[in-house]
Design a protein around this nucleic acid. Structure first.
Lengths: 158, 158
DNA sequence: CTGATATCAGCATAACTGACATCG
DNA sequence: CCGATGTCAGTTATGCTGATATCA
């Protein structure tokens, strides 16, 4: 029943063949690659008690200065209803401060703290490592190609 | 406050700039592309009350014949604890039959029904459409390149 | 007893919907 | 009254862990 397999090829476990339809489905390839990539990214981020969205917020505040939650929604693509939670989490960790905007009392102003700035540097490094591990089997020019093709897709939809 | 923008460019909404760090993160590009792709795929599948995993199971049974749940787990990568639910859903829809294996009463034998076979043909078409829409902005050779690069990643991790 | 198989309860992330209160 | 903003409750899909029952 269990097919014999060359020893030394222990990497891909002893998984039997996948249906051709699945192997050839490009949308599936894309999903699988993203899942693997996300897994590696999250493994890095958990080391500093962060998640992907935290990085999106911190990086945005760092580059654009204090902003309202609504502005952060527009810039990051994070949904309105999630923004509340994410800002809560970041405020709990001392990375940002949330204060009402005196000029427009509907809005909050979210400000990056010193600790948030330090966190950004850590996150930059961890994410660079993750990217490197994810793209490890590709040459530099292949990485560029992949990034370009993905950017075209993301820009086209979206 | 709200920047003026050329009318007619209504497509990408009126979204302000994204932080450079986010734009350049390749792991993020990969995630975003996969999310968009999955969204299109699910829009297609929902038309016939199916989901991605249903296709994985149906295609596998079609190509390999009746199998136990454990074999399906190995071939599709779907987790053990999810397989129960997915098979339930497919059985409810009349796409597969689950019967105990008399030769090994620990196992169930999952068999594709006639309706399941017909469903596969529909799913094949819908997924081909989805793939085409997802990859629409790419030339045929770019699509090949992308598929190749993604396959390298998926094979490397994995 | 051990290991394989299926089942079940539950968790975390993620993306999303809809309702609501407040304020301009 | 209308619209913008923030908040909250709840839903769905997905990937995963761990416990348990059954049987070889």
């Amino acid at each position: 029943m269990t097919k014999a397999r060359e020893p030394g090829t222990a990497r891909p476990a002893d998984r039997p063949a996948t249906a051709a339809r699945l192997r050839n489905l490009r949308t599936r390839l894309l999903s699988l690659a993203a899942i693997q990539s996300d897994r590696l990214v999250n493994q890095k981020l958990v080391q500093v008690d962060a998640r992907k969205r935290h990085y999106a917020i911190i990086a945005t505040l760092y580059e654009f200065g204090p902003e309202s939650q609504e502005e952060l929604v527009s810039r990051t693509g994070i949904h309105r209803s999630e923004m509340v939670t994410v800002i809560d989490e970041l405020a709990d960790r001392g990375m940002v401060e949330r204060s009402p905007n005196p000029a427009n009392r509907r809005q909050n102003v979210i400000t990056l703290t010193q600790q948030g700035r330090r966190q950004l540097l850590k996150l930059d490094k961890l994410l660079a490592q993750a990217e490197d591990e994810v793209l490890a089997p590709l040459t530099p020019s292949e990485r560029e190609q992949l990034a370009r093709l993905l950017a075209v897709l993301v820009h086209h939809h979206g």
